[in-house]
Simulated scan of single mutants.
Amino acid sequence: MPETRTLSPTVAHAIRRELPQVAEATVATIVAEVPAYADAYADGMSATIENAVQLALGGFLELATTRGAAAADTPIQPALDASYRLGRGEARGGRSMDALLAAFRVGARVAFRGLADRAVAAGLSAAQLARFAELVFAYIDALTAASVAGHSDERQASGRVRSQLLEKLGLRLLAAAPHDELVAAAERADWAPPRTLTAVLLPASRVRGALALLDDRTLQPGDDDVSVLLVPDAEGPARAALLRALEGKEAVVGPPRPWTDAAASHRRAVRVLELDPTAPGPTPVDTQHRLCELVLHADEDALADLRAAALAPLDELTGGAREKLTETLRAWLLHHGRRDAVAAELFVHPQTVRYRMGQLRELYGDRLEDPRTVLELTLALA
């Protein structure tokens, strides 16, 4: 046979007999050398890869023996299709492109070594072996490209599907869907529920910049002129970080709420924006600082938050002590700090009022002289 055109039937027959053993050795080496494939035997991937190897190399032998060397680096369609499906399957299995390429590199090395040994033993010359190596690796490069294309297509398709599922989840949260429905939607979207969600309203033009700074579990239900983001676990110290991240984004930030009650956070943010549409500016609007205004506009949910925040310094007291100091504080606010009037209302001695007010000043510090704090306490204790 001409050295650069085709494999002899004798060599091809010897190689073909070796294919099952080469495929088995290829899979074993991939499993040993590529960590992402360590569980291949456990999850059934070994048979899939072995079949793909045998189909690919069988296709190569058919080309090399029937169409000549010029065509031997162009895989026949079944081999291309199999490689494409393999790539899609690997993406669905969670294996990365790097892992897939590493598997091909290892597989090419092991397969060529096994087949070359058999081909040389069957009479392949040195010159023919060099051409054989060139054709094998060119052929495998084409198969690799098909698998990479399949992997990429699957990732893109699954990414679009997941984005749609996440958007639907966000819309269900804003619609206050039943708990079971929300849990099922989160599972379908492969989204791990956080403790809380905080609604953020901001212009659509600011969304991309904001998302780059926020938790990657942040949901974006819809994309209107005023967009909504649902930010996970932004309570406590994390709230300050969220507000800093939103500097310059013209954002209105709702309160943190249990994730299945994200609609409540959204309603709060919407209400603040309705009360003052011009409020959003470079500094984010923290709805927790607008509780007085909300209460004055009959927001009962805000009133509960205001009471909790305004009376938080009393939280560590026993029930009786908390009640006495709360009554004293209410009377002190009502009578503008006139000790005798407070004592008369509470039926206690003025010295008792002085003692209790001393306790309150220890708990509140200078805040009792702050007009904003006085307003919040007045509303909270009304």
Rank of each mutant, 00 (worst) to 15 (best):
R5K: 11
L7A: 13
T10M: 04
A14L: 12
R16N: 06
E18F: 06
P20L: 01
V22R: 02
E24V: 03
I30T: 00
V31I: 02
E33L: 05
V34K: 01
V34P: 01
A36R: 01
A42L: 00
S46A: 15
A47T: 03
T48F: 00
I49F: 00
V53T: 01
G58L: 00
L61K: 00
T65W: 01
T65F: 01
R67W: 01
A70S: 07
A70Y: 05
D73L: 11
Q77E: 15
A82K: 15
Y84M: 09
L86Q: 07
G89D: 03
G89E: 03
E90N: 03
E90T: 03
R92W: 03
M97R: 12
L100T: 04
F104M: 10
F104T: 06
R105S: 15
R109K: 07
R109Y: 10
R113C: 03
G114I: 08
A119G: 13
A121V: 14
A126T: 11
A130V: 04
R131N: 11
V136T: 10
F137P: 10
A138Y: 12
Y139P: 05
A142E: 08
A146R: 15
G150F: 08
S152L: 05
S152I: 10
S152G: 04
A157I: 09
G159R: 01
Q164T: 12
L166M: 08
K168P: 03
L173A: 02
L174C: 03
A176Q: 13
A177V: 05
V183R: 15
W191N: 13
A199F: 05
A199Y: 05
L201S: 06
L201I: 08
L202V: 15
A204E: 10
A204Q: 11
G209M: 02
L211S: 05
D216C: 14
G222M: 11
D224Y: 03
V228G: 12
L230Q: 06
P232A: 04
D233I: 01
P237H: 06
L242K: 11
L246F: 11
G248I: 00
G254D: 07
G254A: 02
P256D: 07
P256M: 02
S265V: 03
R267A: 06
L275N: 03
T283E: 02
V285S: 07
D286R: 04
T287H: 14
Q288I: 09
L294C: 10
V295T: 14
A302C: 12
A304M: 11
L311N: 10
P313L: 09
L314C: 13
D315T: 04
T318C: 07
A331L: 11
D340T: 13
A341P: 13
A341N: 07
A341H: 13
A341Y: 13
F347C: 09
Q351G: 06
Y355Q: 13
Q359M: 09
L360F: 12
G365T: 11
G365S: 13
L368N: 05
P371Q: 03
R372S: 12
A380I: 08
